[in-house]
Design a binder for these strands. Structure first.
Lengths: 204, 204
DNA sequence: AAAAAAATCACTAAAAAAGGGGAGGGCGTA
DNA sequence: TACGCCCTCCCCTTTTTTAGTGATTTTTTT
């Protein structure tokens, strides 16, 4: 029995590349593709694939949201995340939203095939790099409080502790405490690293 | 006369996609591909292409650096930048480093062909989105020097001026000067904003 | 070869951040 | 109710950054 494959990616040449890579594979049947989330959801009603190869960065919607929606409406479909980035937060999000696997775009034909067949069987496939990334640090995105988020935002805008204190009607000491806890939570050496990590984690 | 095309991209499926898209085009001859900057430079001595389709994000080197190096060593080769991102700084950098054009990865076959033929004739091709992006704001990304870029990178990694000085074998005062000029060039209030703007502009 | 830009080092002083504590009040939940 | 978490404030010290101006050497460009 063939595995019916559907692809969502906003880059036409990636779709074409995967199609080209897999066109001679007897175990895989190409049922369709989409370049955005909306048309993906529309086409899924017709095509009924076994596996969706889904890019996490889409023009109209976040890949993780699409993943969640797809799993709600079509629980039998296995979603395989696809991305250029090896970011812990993204991988986690995809898996939390029901994805069965994650592959990087620099994958070889062999890896891609292995991933698709593994996922089609209902198992989970993670690329080697993704596993490494997940193992690195328990969490990439710490839990920060409402106030900390406000302070973080203002720090990113270039305000000093004093200016932030004035804006939030609190003492400089308080702001400094928040700053310190932010640096601690993000495991940052200083404010510069804090901003970098916060941006990468999607807080800014 | 056929246009000899060479491709540099770390994503195997993109290479395969472009090859698949263009394989039936009579005007284009596929002479080779590379997945990193080093092997690209090696292969160029043998293959002598007319046009290089170059991804800006490569594993071992920055795409813009590779572009510069290629244009120095092989001035006759036309470089066509390729990226998923439509970031002003990247486009500018590529063009400043000698690229003849810039295309996004969601380009259609027709656009890609048009870009390649345009560039092969020695003209400049920019995708519609790239032109829009360049028009948006006159200055989003300042020009920074090699040394400044190094310092910026190390600041982002959380090193203090003293640590950077040690690493680069220069005085703390020198590092401080670079830091100051970075802050001035990015029109940042402090290091935090510097990191934020540098990341948004694609320097980190 | 001249001009421009980059990289280097210098001094001073003020401002801000970082690191280390401790502490009280409020608020929701186990 | 008691516990934990958040927000708030406080003290101290050291380190680091920021601001202002200036200058020399090297590299690159014109």
């Amino acid at each position: 029995m063939k595995t019916k494959l559907f692809i969502v990616d906003d880059h036409y040449m990636v779709i074409e590349g995967i199609r080209s890579l897999l066109q001679n594979e007897t175990g895989i049947e190409w049922v369709g593709h989409a370049t955005d989330a909306d048309s993906c959801l529309r086409l899924l009603r017709i095509d009924e694939p076994d596996v969706i190869l889904m890019d996490v960065s889409l023009p109209d919607r976040n890949g993780t949201e699409l993943c969640k929606e797809v799993k709600q409406k079509f629980p039998g479909v296995q979603v395989l995340g696809l991305s250029t980035f090896n970011q812990q937060a993204i991988i986690r999000n995809m898996l939390d939203n029901g994805a069965s696997g994650y592959v990087l775009k620099n994958a070889t034909k062999e890896e891609l095939l292995r991933a698709i067949t593994t996922v089609a069987m209902g198992k989970t496939y993670l690329s080697f790099e993704a596993v490494l990334s997940l193992r690195e640090q328990p969490r990439d995105a710490p839990v920060i409080t409402r106030r900390e988020k406000e302070v973080l935002q203002l720090i990113a805008e270039g305000l000093t502790n004093g200016e932030i204190a004035e804006k939030l009607f609190v003492s400089i000491l308080t702001v400094n405490t928040h700053r310190k806890s932010l640096i601690a939570k993000f495991d940052a050496a200083n404010t510069a690293v804090l901003i970098g990590k916060a941006m990468k984690a999607g807080f800014l």
